[in-house]
Design a protein around this nucleic acid. Structure first.
Length: 771
RNA sequence: GCGGGCGUGGUGGAAUCGGUAGACACGCCGGCUUUAGGUGCCGGUGGCGCAAGCCAUGGGGGUUCGAGUCCCUCCGCCCGCACCA
């Protein structure tokens, strides 16, 4: 069911869409449903009902409420990602990536729930425990499908500079990609004759390395220990490390543990033999899964050295004797060649020396890992691959797409995908050799579905291709993307990767680099300063609000409550204030339509004072709302401007203004309010003019009414406001000074004092500095 | 620990380029309409002070004729990442 966050995001989006339409742009404002995934699947496991039933019911409810809210969607382009006409092309994209080596299979550590006997998706692991069983999740090695997003790490990082996104989202993506510059350095184990490269950001500390550590998952660890006195210890340590839940193992404050491997490696810079260890503070996923340990200049290595009584050798001088020391300084204990050299300078020198000696090279490492896309789950897009004993992984021919999701009896995963039970579906002939073969039974991560839907919107009903490149060329990139910050990393990174990969493969126009030229992340609606949640019992649903106040009040209030990128507290009395305002606007329009003759609007030269004052306010409001909507999302101040305008239209304020002026003012107020409260505004406008406001161009402010022939001059003495006086707009500096010095109040403050300085800000103020 | 953001009346917020702090709204107070309540309409509302005036944008300091806005420093809150070598 839609929640209040949906109401907010579509209130923002619809305001933007309406505004741009009426300024003459063609606007594509689509709607779709990211329908595969866990909610419908869990419902199916519980009830035995096909997930399609729950999904369709949810979609129907969304559609009902979207129509009730009156958001201006192009419904001809609507789709759900679970429909074969859509996922056919998700599969097609998978095949393109597969063909070019961007989709591949490899053994990987995945989350295993020992109670449910099933693999879990990452999002089902909460605080290291299985979502439903509550059991500590283990790590298992299984063959999985990946997308090679790491190939795009550099471009995903660099192109962030080309898009208009909130800085904090860009920062989160930069941190997630995690680029580190350093060097790969080779440490050789002479006992077994194998070179072990390590990645380090600190090659300047190479001379301080006193031991060498490998991750428990490192494939060579057991082999190295075999036949040594440490074999049993190592085996036990690995078992323990692999069965400890990830959360616990990753705790920074956990004491360092590890066991020796019974071998040494050679430090390439000085030939020293460094003892080898296995320790769980080294991660297999980052770098090479092995590190050189420099306890004098790294906190973790230092803690490990302390725990196991290993030598600590300082190689960078610091202000005191304290270790570990992470700062900069001149090298010591590094031999005559480097001693005394500043460590930042030595860093490059040592890398160049390693390169000459063939013992290492400059290197860049990323935190980003390849995207694991296979899920042992039912409710997702089937992976279009056939496994043949003779030919290996064979792509399903494009002409056979879509690979339809088969019906099964039991939706619960039992260590393998529920699809594996659909024998008729699984067993096929190999498209390559014609021999017996089996379908891939994993489905795709739902983030795959949502990584290209914006492309499909451009050509949603194309049955022959995922899209016509001409349609993509016309609409892409998305001019304005709107969503929650919770998508800052996963979805927004995956979509960028897809777009770049599809351009590279020639399926998208070459000049497209990014999917979303501008991004807006809206803040949450809170209740009493808290997130709304069922457990707190403080949820306000859109349907409750809309039933009570109507959709215009709900939409306009959510936009009026504050800047839309900030979190905001829902207030019933605040919403009532918006309800009163909309009612006042409508009644004012209805009364004017009935009582005031439809006279022409007076010209600026012919306008009487009351007309002029009212018309100036109208054009001020047009100017204010237009600038608040142009490139900015200042809906709150835009709506406030319309409120100010309506306050000027009250009988007491408008005085003797002509009927034509009053009608024009009310009609303009309705026209300006239309993007935020479309039903009320359109009806008010129609009552008054007989026209459809959405067919009217956006109002344009008349400069003649924006310029004023006088202004309020602020008079300051020593920076404090002491008086105000009307001054002619074009007045010179001297004229303004003369005005400033001659008011009774200014005389009071100036007489008898020595004037030190006079500052004049034309059109604004005069500040007289006295002693 | 690293990175990002925020702090203004009783409340949500406004102040777009260093130039009138508090627009607009909620709430509250008073009045009119009403048998009454609600609705509607009108007026008031940062604090202190009889007033002149003074004080006020998390605290302290600085730059400037002038600081909510720029700089330094401290405090508090929120978000993201975190044994990433």
């Amino acid at each position: 069911e839609p929640h209040i966050g949906h109401l907010k995001v579509y209130s923002v989006g619809d305001a933007v869409a309406h505004f741009h339409r009426r300024t003459g742009r063609r606007v594509l404002h689509p709607m779709g449903y990211d329908a595969f995934g866990l909610p419908a699947e869990n419902h199916a496991i519980k009830t035995g009902q096909h997930p399609r039933v729950a999904t369709d019911a949810a979609i129907a409810e969304f559609q009902r409420q979207f129509r009730e809210w009156g958001i201006s969607i192009d419904w001809t382009r609507e789709f759900g990602t679970h429909e074969p006409r859509y996922y056919r092309w998700t599969q097609w994209i998978f095949l393109q990536l597969f063909k070019h080596g961007l989709a591949y299979q490899k053994e990987a550590a995945v989350n295993w729930d020992p109670v449910e006997e099933t693999v879990l998706a990452n999002e089902q692991v909460v605080d290291g425990r299985g979502e439903r069983s509550g059991a500590l999740v283990e790590v298992r090695q299984l063959k999985q499908w990946f997308f090679r997003i790491t190939d795009y790490a550099e471009r995903l990082l660099a192109d962030l500079d080309t898009i208009r996104w909130p800085e904090h989202v860009k920062t989160m993506q930069r941190n997630w990609i995690g680029r580190s510059e350093g060097a790969e350095v080779v440490f050789r184990c002479e006992d077994v004759g194998i070179d072990y490269p390590v990645f380090t950001t600190r090659p300047d500390t190479l001379f301080g390395a006193t031991f060498f550590v490998m991750a428990p998952e490192h494939p060579d660890v057991l082999r190295l220990a075999e036949g040594t006195e440490h074999e049993d210890d190592v085996r036990a340590y690995i078992n323990h490390a692999l069965t400890t839940d990830k959360q616990l193992r990753g705790d920074v404050d956990k004491p360092k543990t590890g066991v020796p491997l019974g071998h040494t490696v050679t430090n390439p810079v000085n030939g020293e033999q460094l003892p080898m260890y296995v320790a769980d503070y080294v991660l297999m996923e980052y770098g090479t899964g092995a590190i050189m340990a420099v306890p004098a200049h790294d906190e973790r290595d230092y803690a490990f050295a302390q725990a196991y009584d290993l030598p600590v050798r300082r190689v960078i001088e610091g202000p005191d004797d304290e270790l570990p020391y992470m700062g900069d300084g001149p090298l010591v204990n590094c031999g005559p060649r480097f001693d005394g050299m500043h460590n930042r300078e030595a860093l490059g020198e040592i890398v160049r020396w390693l390169e000459r000696e063939g013992k290492g090279h400059a290197s860049v490492n990323y935190r980003l890992r390849d995207w694991l896309v296979s899920r042992q789950r039912y409710w997702g897009t089937p992976i279009p691959i056939i496994h043949c004993p003779a030919c290996g992984a064979v792509p399903v021919p494009e002409s056979d797409l879509p690979v339809l999701l088969p019906d099964v009896e039991d939706y619960k995963p039992r260590g393998r995908s529920p699809l594996a039970t659909a024998a008729d579906w699984v067993n096929v002939t190999c498209p390559s050799c014609g021999g017996p073969a089996q379908r891939e039974t994993d489905t795709m991560d739902t983030f795959v579905d949502s990584s290209w839907y914006f492309l499909r919107y451009c050509d949603a009903n194309n049955d022959d291709a995922p899209w016509d490149p001409a349609a993509i060329g016309m609409w892409m990139p998305v001019d304005q993307y709107i969503g929650g910050v919770e998508h800052a990393i996963l979805h927004l990174l995956y979509a960028r990767f897809f777009t770049k990969a599809l351009v590279d493969l020639g399926h998208l126009p070459a000049d497209i680099r990014e999917p979303f030229a501008a991004l807006f992340t809206q803040g949450m609606i809170l209740r009493d300063g808290d997130k709304m949640s069922k457990s707190k019992g403080n949820v306000v649903s859109p349907s409750t609000i809309v039933d009570r106040y109507g959709s215009d009040t709900a939409r306009a209030y959510i936009l009026f409550i504050g800047p839309p990128d900030q979190d905001a507290d829902w207030s019933d009395s605040g919403a009532e204030g918006m309800y009163r305002f909309l009612g006042r606007l409508w009644r004012t329009a209805a009364e004017a339509a009935e009582e005031l003759p439809d006279d022409p609007v007076p010209d600026i030269d012919a306008a009487r004072p009351d007309d002029e004052r009212l018309l100036r306010k109208v054009h001020w409001a047009i100017d204010k709302v237009t600038s608040d909507m142009s490139g900015r999302f200042n809906f709150n101040t835009a709506i406030a401007a319309v409120m100010e305008l309506l306050n000027e239209i009250t009988p007491a304020k408008r005085g003797d203004a002509a009927p034509g002026s009053v009608r024009f003012a009310i009609g303009t107020a309705a026209s300006l309010l239309f993007p935020f409260a479309p039903h009320t505004a359109a009806d008010a406008y129609h009552l008054l003019t007989g026209e459809r406001v959405w067919e009217q161009p956006w109002p344009v402010a008349d400069p003649a009414f924006l310029e004023t022939d006088s202004f309020e001059l602020v008079l300051q003495v020593n920076g404090k406001v002491r008086d105000r006086v009307q001054a002619p707009s074009g007045a010179s500096r001297d004229e303004l000074l003369a005005l400033a010095r001659d008011t009774p109040r200014m005389h009071h403050y100036l007489d008898g004092h020595e004037v030190v300085k006079e500052i004049v800000v034309p059109g604004k103020l005069v500040n007289v500095v006295v002693r």
